[in-house]
Simulated assay, not measured.
Amino acid sequence: MALQKASNTFMLLGTCVPCLKQGAAKFKVKRLELDENLLMYFPKHEFVYAHDPDSQCKTGDVVLIEQLPQKMTRLITHKVKEVIYPLGDVTDPLTGKKVASARYRDHIDAVSKVYGQRSKAFDYDKAPPRGWQEDKKDFTHVETYIKYHDSGEDDPYAV
């Protein structure tokens, strides 16, 4: 049985990747495809463009996208419905607890209290929200362009 394309699906969960289009965002959607010979599922990635006029998604965000009733353009077939997880701020959907890597933040704090808190340990409660380094170290909000040749000038936002 063939799996329908991601662009034909009503709702998708995707990760935002860098995009050069104005008013749109590009998403990488992971799908599992059945190999008929091995009878095993293997991951396959598809890319979908979604309408995002407010630029609410940034690179790395996990976003819920919804299919438009009619295509806006040949590529833009979906719209951004909601940012589920901003980059670096993942919440377990079952328990509602914050996660760091593969462990709960509460568990990491409890273990560090038992073995002794390090003075240089990262504290998630005191950390500033994402986006405070815009124009300093974070340039994901800046409009990028394709660099076709090397002119000798410094092009910081060229792709």
Results as ranks from 00 to 15, higher is better:
residue 53 P to D: 15
residue 146 I to Y: 08
residue 80 V to F: 04
residue 42 F to M: 15
residue 104 Y to W: 04
residue 151 S to K: 08
residue 73 T to V: 08
residue 98 K to A: 06
residue 120 K to A: 14
residue 135 D to M: 09
residue 129 P to C: 03
residue 45 H to S: 10
residue 134 E to C: 06
residue 88 G to T: 00
residue 132 W to Y: 14
residue 137 K to R: 10
residue 60 G to C: 02
residue 62 V to C: 04
residue 56 Q to K: 11
residue 58 K to A: 04
residue 62 V to H: 00
residue 112 S to A: 12
residue 95 T to M: 03
residue 147 K to N: 13
residue 69 P to G: 09
residue 111 V to R: 14
residue 59 T to Q: 06
residue 70 Q to P: 14
residue 90 V to D: 00
residue 93 P to A: 04
residue 71 K to M: 11
residue 56 Q to Y: 08
residue 127 A to E: 01
residue 127 A to F: 02
residue 78 H to A: 03
residue 77 T to I: 11
residue 144 T to I: 13
residue 150 D to K: 09
residue 107 H to P: 08
residue 106 D to A: 08
residue 48 V to Q: 01
residue 54 D to R: 13
residue 143 E to G: 11
residue 77 T to S: 15
residue 149 H to V: 14
residue 119 S to K: 09
residue 92 D to Y: 06
residue 70 Q to R: 15
residue 93 P to I: 03
residue 142 V to A: 08
residue 114 V to W: 11
residue 46 E to V: 01
residue 126 K to I: 02
residue 81 K to Y: 13
residue 79 K to H: 14
residue 56 Q to N: 15
residue 74 R to W: 15
residue 83 V to E: 01
residue 105 R to K: 11
residue 100 A to C: 07
residue 98 K to Y: 05
residue 86 P to F: 00
residue 119 S to F: 13
residue 62 V to M: 03
residue 86 P to C: 01
residue 63 V to T: 04
residue 47 F to R: 03
residue 141 H to S: 03
residue 110 A to L: 06
residue 107 H to G: 15
residue 126 K to W: 02
residue 83 V to N: 00
residue 83 V to G: 00
residue 74 R to L: 09
residue 70 Q to W: 07
residue 103 R to H: 09
residue 125 D to H: 10
residue 83 V to Y: 01
residue 41 Y to D: 10
residue 72 M to V: 14
residue 126 K to C: 01
residue 101 S to N: 11
residue 75 L to S: 11
residue 73 T to Y: 06
residue 95 T to L: 10
